[in-house]
Design a protein around this nucleic acid. Structure first.
Lengths: 232, 232
DNA sequence: AAGTGGTCTAGACCACCAG
DNA sequence: TGGTGGTCTAGACCACTTT
């Protein structure tokens, strides 16, 4: 048994969720049924469900069943938040404008961050609006080898983050936050008046140990705060 | 059985850790031994250990044993980092200067954050230096009822954070990060030149569900970045 | 060879919620 | 009353490390 049986079961369930075969709110088979389906004991099936409950893909309702949970979005841990969900959660409209979309040979810095020394990378620049107010400028580099279809997406309909988590489930992220004085181009796009600082978030994301994306997110300081809840 | 047996076992182990009876690096009894100690099956003892491994109190080494993990400190999760450790890790000197130390009746905002409507609160203002360069201004309010000895500490020798985690182990934290234009007093203390923005971190910490401390940490943007690693 | 954690089984009893 | 998840047991075999 190279792969533990409970992991095989967990991944099978995860696939059903990610392909859309099982939808949010759906009830999944009971632990006894899963055990039979996979020729395992109930304890083993339960352990698979345990791991997915912990990862917040599933939710248990005692005496009732186990259900597909609402999308992960701001997955409890930290700001792997989706700016779109965040804005919509505030009851506001979210709009995206694509400023740039290209394929290029990375410079040293980007090549290093994406471990893409041999391959090309994609770059997009997106401006996010909250109720017609610019709230984030997203400059993102993506490993073209690992996510070849990236540039073909319509980024006015799906965020880069949403697409990436779809095709390459995140396993790890590095986040750096700093305050900067906005450049002129930033001031222009984000409608920043003189003297207002800017929050710069640099985020590298990894899937299965491989660098997927390197993004710089700029927010006008007077319109955005970064928050998170940490449970120890 | 009002409390599940595995929780009883987990809490018993946690108590051993928190009282210092078992120290960092110590090997805890094997799963078989725990099962015997608590008159449980190995699976139940294991479930208790599972929960503490997950909470990062314990660490398993297959074929070897289970060990008390290094203090939670910057425990991978997030910036419950200690600025002192951070500076020393860079090989630099850390110095603290106490600017203010007082007991006061909280204003509405602070009373709300600390749930201290009936009691007084302590306030300290500390300036942190990295190699003689001011790197953080710490303004901190502490619930006087829950941490009565707080003001008696020598904050040039122990950080407020260190003392608090000692007397009231953190269970939860809220963190907010924003970029601000520094006030004149901030510019003065942090040696900030005009135009340089400032990173403001607001941190509320909780122990056992009770609000312990409400702190505002200010950093000059040109000398400080906030980083974290998120594992999913 | 002995001990450890990692996995798995085939039962069991319970409290709870649904029809 | 039957099905669900929540808990628990008393075994078992494995790969691995330590002695």
């Amino acid at each position: 048994m190279t792969q533990p049986k409970y992991k095989v079961i967990a991944e099978a369930i995860l696939t059903k969720i990610q392909t859309g075969e099982w939808l949010e709110g759906d009830k999944i088979p009971s632990e006894m049924e899963l055990a039979e389906l996979f020729s395992a004991s109930r304890m083993t099936a339960r352990k698979a469900v345990d791991s997915l409950v912990h990862a917040e893909y599933l939710e248990r309702l005692p005496s009732v069943g186990t259900f597909i949970k609402a999308p992960k979005a701001q997955s409890s841990l930290l700001e792997i938040k989706n700016i779109s969900d965040e804005i919509i959660a505030r009851g506001h409209d979210h709009k995206m404008v694509v400023l740039s979309k290209m394929t290029l040979v990375p410079n040293d810095k980007v090549a290093f961050e994406l471990s893409a020394f041999e391959s090309k990378v994609f770059k997009i620049v997106i401006l996010h609006y909250e109720n017609d107010t610019p709230i984030q400028l997203e400059e993102r580099f993506v490993n073209a080898e690992l996510v070849p279809q990236f540039l073909e997406q319509d980024f006015t309909k799906i965020t880069a983050n949403q697409y990436l988590t779809l095709v390459a489930p995140l396993s790890e992220a590095h986040v750096t936050v700093e305050a900067i004085e906005p450049s002129n181009i930033l001031k222009h796009h984000l409608h920043i008046s003189s003297g207002t600082p800017c929050l710069k978030i640099i985020r590298s994301t990894f899937s299965d140990g491989k660098a997927i994306s390197y993004a710089m997110l700029y927010h006008p300081a007077d319109k955005y705060k970064l928050t998170s809840l940490v449970k120890l």
